[in-house]
Simulated scan of single mutants.
Amino acid sequence: MTKLKIAIQKSGRLNQDSLKLLKDCGISIDNGKDQLKASARNFPVEVLYLRNGDIPQYLRDGVVDVAILGENTLVEKGEDLKIVERLGFSKCRVSLAVPKEAAFTDLKDLDGKRIATSYPNTVKKFFDENGISADLHIINGSVEIAPNIGLADAICDIVSSGSTLFKNGLKEVVKMSESEAVLTVAPNLSAEKQEILNTIQFRIQSVLRGQNSKYILLNAPNEKIDDIIELLPGMRSPTVLPLAQEGWSSIHTVVIGKSKFWDLIDELKVRGAEGILVVPIEKMVL
């Protein structure tokens, strides 16, 4: 039986979030402690736990078929590989940082300086595009210590909250790019494996839509219904049901996107909505 081989990070937050996504897609992985390979009980999938930086080459070699990994790793080692789905978790940025006490005006201040990084290709490309020449020191591991031990004048690393930089006496000065977890695919996937991948993508998209949406139920006087519906960007159109209390109705709809969610709630209240219930959506299948 044909199985799709999926590579995920061996350990860390990306590992946990990747396994959770597969679980949310109904794929149960039988993996024990320190296991490097595990099969799904209920789906033609095999998971390989690999070092993030090694995954792009394994994809090229056909050792694995698809992978969940950080976009920053693809920029560094796999720009030739195709992203088929952005997954929205493990978000971070690739940034330059210098010691807190260092004077910094703009990128030109790093010209001729020593930069410690685990992302030499990313830094070189960014510096070349901006006309900066620097001495790169490649470090596999915690680069934040490099300025403190006199190895470098600045670092380039992934930044999430910035707490690690703060603890090491560094300040973020230039955001080079943003990154998130992505689903990427090997160059030559067989038709059988592509079919399995299509099913997984469909499930992933349903999970991601659910995560980015809310189900809203509210009560409103009938004379306010048109004003309220005007605000609600439902999947097709809101559902309106009469209440037992004469002159009142219940309105049900799905709100997609979170960026202006509370602004919407405030405006619904202004237009007469009462008893607003907001319910999370596990999955949204279109």
Rank of each mutant, 00 (worst) to 15 (best):
S163T: 11
M1D: 10
L232D: 00
V98I: 14
T73I: 15
A181V: 03
S190L: 08
D34V: 06
I55K: 01
V159A: 08
S250F: 00
D227K: 08
L107N: 03
T105N: 15
I276E: 09
V279F: 07
V64W: 10
S142R: 13
I204C: 01
G275C: 09
S11I: 03
Q245L: 11
D153K: 05
D24L: 10
P238S: 05
L217T: 10
L189R: 01
P280Q: 04
V98T: 07
C25T: 03
V240C: 08
M235Q: 10
E172A: 13
I204V: 13
D30G: 08
E79D: 11
F261R: 02
L69Y: 05
V207T: 02
Q245V: 07
A38V: 04
G26Q: 08
D17R: 13
G210V: 02
R60T: 09
P238E: 01
I132D: 01
E246S: 15
R86P: 01
V98Y: 03
N198D: 15
K77M: 09
L217G: 06
E129F: 06
L81A: 02
L4I: 05
P238F: 04
G162P: 07
G78L: 05
R51A: 13
I68A: 01
H252L: 14
I276G: 11
C92A: 15
I155F: 08
I68M: 12
I196G: 03
R209D: 11
S250Q: 15
E180K: 06
K5F: 13
V182N: 09
T253D: 07
S249L: 03
G247H: 03
E223G: 02
D109T: 09
Y215T: 01
C25E: 00
T239Q: 12
S18C: 03
C25I: 04
N52Q: 14
L170W: 10
E144L: 12
L48R: 11
T253I: 02
E267D: 13
G26D: 09
N168P: 04
L218C: 10
F43I: 00
M1G: 12
V270E: 14
V64L: 08
